[in-house]
């Protein structure tokens, strides 16, 4: 008889894998990405392609150089590349997009230990690096209908420029993947149904910005549907390693993101603040985790008897 396999329990595993989760995220991003390509043309498609290919290549070469196991099979580099591409305006030169991907994978992700160890979302951090390095190139948006360069995004445009329908379905200028709130929400719903993400962060993020804008007398429609909030709240703020683990923590994180976004938009020099808001909250995640951990089942609060 053959020798029996002895391993520790459990002897049953759920079918979900890391690669499966990443594939789900890619599927969820596809509608908005494809719409972006239709809206902004072939150039947009080229940017997305360059971002994805560079990201995967960078990860592959890094692993090769450091003699680490090859990790491109988990598709996380594809997600990073795709997210970065969707966060870029369609006018950006391809080499800028490529630099962004290299920064995201090598500097932000791998240098901190690879998947699960990065403290900031690679796509967001890379976008900010590009934004401060190439401010002109990163803020010239294409007007989708007339092909005029340097159209103001709904956030920078005067209120009333766009109708509610145009804002919601994405017929306006902006980064490649951020314009269609509708398709991004469809992707988000898919991820929630597949239990890949929890709805807490997106709801708190979007809700906070909405309420604060409303209270301060701003244009709520362009605030929620016009900028990068949908893409940021659904796909980037929910990144596993850079968001809190507990439900309470997620709540704080989402509200924090919304608050900072609003403050930057309202009082800062820039029309958009989603990326900075998420990055700032990313840094706070270890602290949020630490102060929101649940007590284990059946453990009483310490120090209660003194009260």
């Amino acid at each position: 008889m053959e020798k029996l396999t002895v391993s520790s329990s459990p002897h049953l595993r759920h079918s979900d894998t890391t690669a499966g989760i990443m594939l789900d995220v890619i599927i969820a991003l596809c509608p908005a990405a494809i719409y972006g390509c239709i809206l902004f043309g072939l150039k947009a498609a080229a940017i997305l392609l360059v971002c994805v290919v560079t990201a995967v290549l960078a990860e592959f070469l890094w692993n090769k150089a450091l003699k680490k196991p090859n990790s491109i099979g988990d598709f996380s580099a594809v997600v990073t590349g795709l997210l970065l591409g969707m966060n870029l305006p369609s006018t950006v030169p391809l080499w800028v997009a490529a630099i962004g991907s290299v920064v995201a994978i090598i500097v932000v992700k791998q240098m901190f230990g690879g998947i699960g160890h990065n403290f900031a979302n690679p796509a967001i951090a890379a976008r900010i690096v590009l934004l401060v390095s190439f401010p002109g190139k990163m803020t010239s948006f294409l007007e989708p209908v007339s092909d005029t360069v340097t159209s103001a995004t709904p956030l920078a445009a005067e209120a009333g420029t766009y109708s509610a329908k145009m804002l919601f379905f994405g017929m306006h200028s902006g980064s490649i993947g951020e314009t269609s709130a509708f398709l991004l929400l469809v992707g988000g719903a898919y991820l929630i149904i597949r239990r890949v993400i929890s709805p807490i962060i997106p709801l708190c993020f979007i809700g906070t910005v909405g309420i604060l804008t409303l209270v301060s007398g701003g244009d709520i429609l362009s605030a929620i549907f016009g900028g990068g909030i949908m893409l940021g709240a659904v796909f980037m703020a929910t990144d596993y390693s850079t968001s809190p683990i507990t439900a309470k923590g997620k709540l704080i994180f989402g509200i924090g993101c919304g608050l900072i976004t609003f403050i930057i938009r309202k009082f800062g020099a820039m029309p958009e603040g989603v990326s900075y808001a998420i990055l700032l909250m990313n840094i706070l995640v270890p602290y949020i985790n630490r102060f929101t951990l649940n007590r284990p089942f059946g453990k009483r609060k310490v120090g209660r008897h003194h009260a």
Binding site: E2, T5, V6, S9, P10, H11
Partner: peptide, 16 residues
């Protein structure tokens, strides 16, 4: 046979 957990597949201890 390859693996024989004594008990169910979640908590069973694999026999040698």
């Amino acid at each position: 046979i390859g693996k024989v957990p004594m008990g169910g597949p979640m908590m069973g201890i694999a026999l040698d």
